[in-house]
Amino acid sequence: MATKPSDLSEVDLIQQGAEARVYSGHFAGEPCIIKERFKKTYRHPTLEERLTQRRIQQEAKALLRCRKAGIAVPSVYFIDSTNNCIYLEKIEPSLTVREFIQQLPLPYSDEDNNKLYAIALKIGSVLASLHNTDTIHGDLTTSNMLLKFPHDAFELYLIDFGLSQVSQLHEDKGVDLYVLEKAFLSTHPKTEHVFEEILKSYQKNNKKAVEVLKKLDEVRLRGRKRVMVG
């Protein structure tokens, strides 16, 4: 079913995510990741075309913007708009934060908790910097964060910016954190204490943290208070 990008023979499919097939290959001799946004047959063709083009652009733009601001993200090597592919620096050897957390057995030992806190600290500060530049990620999950080896150094990369946008609104930043909170806690049961640490670290490093966290509270409440009449 999965056909490789047409002019690429030396590539390996490493994952079929929700939106894209992710291949590992080479670009100008460098190991790279090729992310191909394949056609979604369930979507109306007009809508499909519109979304795919927009998301490739958004992903490239946000990656450049982050790099300029010194936030760790892969470099963009090349954009192939005809085949809806984007070529990215391959972060390796690496592990998603999700994989990292899931390999720790429950209940967490003190040592594991310390590892989790260290990652939380890093996540909070990276997100704070991201929001300081008014970039909204749009799909924050632990699958969209890579830890580069060696893990003790905790080099954290953000990836997957297709749903990103530029916005100064506290509301948008609050929703960004809300999306992460739900993804985080539902994927990793019994990590409330870790998420707490992410928010603390965010608060220390973001200029508008008080307002953003207030919005986060509001958005959470909306989820709990939804009414069906009206």
Partner: peptide
């Protein structure tokens, strides 16, 4: 439904909500 829009998966004795509407439900 009229009052809810949720993406749910089961793990560890709970139906966990991975995604949902941040304002009104789709049926609404």
């Amino acid at each position: 439904s009229g009052g809810n829009t949720q993406v749910i998966a089961y793990s560890q004795r709970r139906y966990r909500i991975f995604g949902e509407t941040i304002d009104i439900a789709v049926g609404n």
